Simulated scan of single mutants.
Amino acid sequence: MSKGCQDVINAVKWALDSGYRHIDIAAIYKNEEGVDQGIQEGSVDRKNVFVVS
């Protein structure tokens, strides 16, 4: 896993812990893998997270 991917994972987990429930992803960002992993590892149930691509 790249450093950039780990940064995305950490950012998503922090955002979820801080109350964010809407996450924007796009192929151009190249963050799909990190966002997915961050949601899986995060403290919020997936059904409560709104992901837009």
Rank of each mutant, 00 (worst) to 15 (best):
M1F: 06
M1Q: 09
M1K: 11
M1P: 03
S2N: 13
S2Y: 03
K3F: 04
K3Q: 11
K3S: 08
K3C: 00
G4S: 06
C5R: 15
C5Q: 15
Q6H: 09
Q6A: 07
Q6M: 12
Q6L: 09
D7F: 02
D7S: 11
V8S: 01
V8C: 05
V8K: 04
I9S: 06
I9A: 05
I9P: 03
I9W: 06
I9Q: 07
N10D: 13
N10C: 01
N10P: 00
N10Y: 02
N10V: 05
A11F: 01
A11Y: 02
V12H: 11
K13C: 09
K13L: 01
W14H: 12
W14K: 14
W14A: 12
A15K: 08
A15G: 11
L16Q: 11
L16A: 10
D17R: 12
D17S: 12
G19M: 04
G19Q: 06
G19H: 04
G19V: 04
G19E: 03
Y20N: 10
Y20S: 10
Y20W: 09
Y20E: 11
Y20G: 07
R21M: 07
R21D: 07
R21A: 07
H22K: 14
I23Y: 09
I23E: 08
D24E: 10
D24M: 05
D24V: 08
D24G: 08
I25Y: 06
A26L: 10
A26P: 04
A27Y: 14
A27E: 13
A27M: 09
I28E: 10
I28S: 12
Y29A: 00
Y29D: 03
Y29I: 01
Y29R: 01
K30Q: 14
K30F: 03
K30A: 11
N31R: 01
N31W: 01
N31F: 00
E32S: 08
E32H: 11
E33V: 09
E33R: 12
E33F: 02
E33G: 00
E33Y: 03
G34T: 05
G34L: 04
G34S: 04
G34Q: 04
V35Y: 08
V35S: 05
V35Q: 09
V35N: 05
V35A: 12
V35D: 04
D36I: 08
D36K: 15
D36G: 15
D36H: 13
Q37C: 05
Q37R: 15
Q37D: 07
G38N: 09
G38A: 10
G38K: 13
I39F: 05
I39L: 09
I39K: 08
I39H: 06
Q40N: 07
Q40A: 10
E41C: 03
E41Q: 15
G42R: 02
G42K: 05
G42N: 00
G42E: 03
S43T: 11
S43L: 00
V44N: 01
V44E: 03
V44F: 04
V44S: 02
D45I: 01
D45H: 11
D45C: 02
D45V: 04
R46P: 00
K47A: 07
K47S: 14
K47W: 03
N48D: 15
N48E: 15
V49M: 06
F50T: 04
F50N: 10
F50W: 15
V51G: 10
V51T: 14
V51H: 12
V51F: 09
V52N: 13
V52K: 14
V52Y: 14
S53V: 13
S53P: 15
S53K: 15
